[in-house]
């Protein structure tokens, strides 16, 4: 059976004064899919993601996130998604446990749920001994793994990851991706941006944005075949070089 579409977009557009940041993008993401959302700096990825998260109203076009409309049902969207970025994810001056408790509370989870899930999460990440330490004192890689687990703590249907592994060491980067695979196996849809082209290979499908448009969308294998390339890096360079829009 074909999996249902959890994200649908049709001609989704965002214009700022005289500038089309996102130009009529149309694509679907299936439930449980790991979807890589690539593009050069300034291609429009962040603007597109903000619309999909219900944080920015589109200028035109349509989109639904887990069945909710991006114009009218933004509160419903926020409940059904998780979000994590490289820049901000956790409160540094709260402990590991306090951060989890905080996010659980924000999403209206019961104390019993939070307690049980916290124990599971600490065990899964093997950080039981760090539970009462300030997040500031953790190594970056641990922070990022914790941030991901917190982002899916409320069992969202989709999690948006904005360059989650920047600057992370290669071993931890892979541990991070194992967490992504596990979440995906549980049916959580993963929507991820990255500058690491080897990570593009870990996605089921990848889209590449150029000048506000989606120029290519396929499996990594399909993209490499289409662009007669041996690596995703090569595919990306071929497409991104076509950009005419100045990186503004």
């Amino acid at each position: 059976m074909e999996a249902e579409n959890i994200i649908t977009t049709e001609e989704l557009t965002k214009r700022f004064a005289g500038f089309t940041a996102v130009d009529a993008i149309s694509f679907n993401v299936k439930k449980g899919e790991i979807f890589g959302f690539l593009g050069a700096n300034g291609a429009g990825k962040t603007t597109a993601m903000r619309m999909l998260c219900g944080l920015s109203k589109p200028t035109s076009g349509k989109a639904t996130i887990a069945g909710a409309d991006v114009y009218k049902q933004t509160e419903q969207i926020k409940k059904s998604i998780g979000y994590m970025s490289q820049k901000f994810s956790l409160y540094e001056d709260l402990t590991v446990k306090e951060n989890i408790r905080f996010y659980g509370g924000i999403y209206g989870k019961t104390n019993a749920f939070i307690k049980e899930k916290t124990a599971f999460l600490l065990h899964q990440l093997n950080i039981e001994n760090e539970a009462d330490k300030l997040v500031a004192s953790l190594p970056l890689g641990w922070k990022q793994k914790l941030a991901f687990s917190v982002a899916i703590f409320h069992e969202p249907q989709i999690v948006f990851l904005d360059e989650p592994t920047g600057g992370v060491d290669p071993v931890t980067r892979r541990e991070f991706w194992n967490l992504i695979y596990q979440a995906s196996e549980r049916g959580i849809t993963i929507f991820v941006t990255t500058h690491y082209m080897d990570e593009a290979e870990y996605c089921n499908r990848v889209s590449i944005m150029v000048d506000g448009k989606i120029e290519a969308l396929d499996t990594p294998r399909g993209l490499k075949e289409t662009y007669n390339a041996t690596t995703m890096d090569d595919v990306f360079l071929q497409l991104a070089r076509k950009a005419t829009r100045a990186d503004v």
Binding site: A40, N41, G166, G167, H195, F236, L237, A240, R241, A243
Partner: peptide
Amino acid sequence: TTGVDAVSRK
């Protein structure tokens, strides 16, 4: 080159 896309890195 941190946080810079593959084209600009090159």
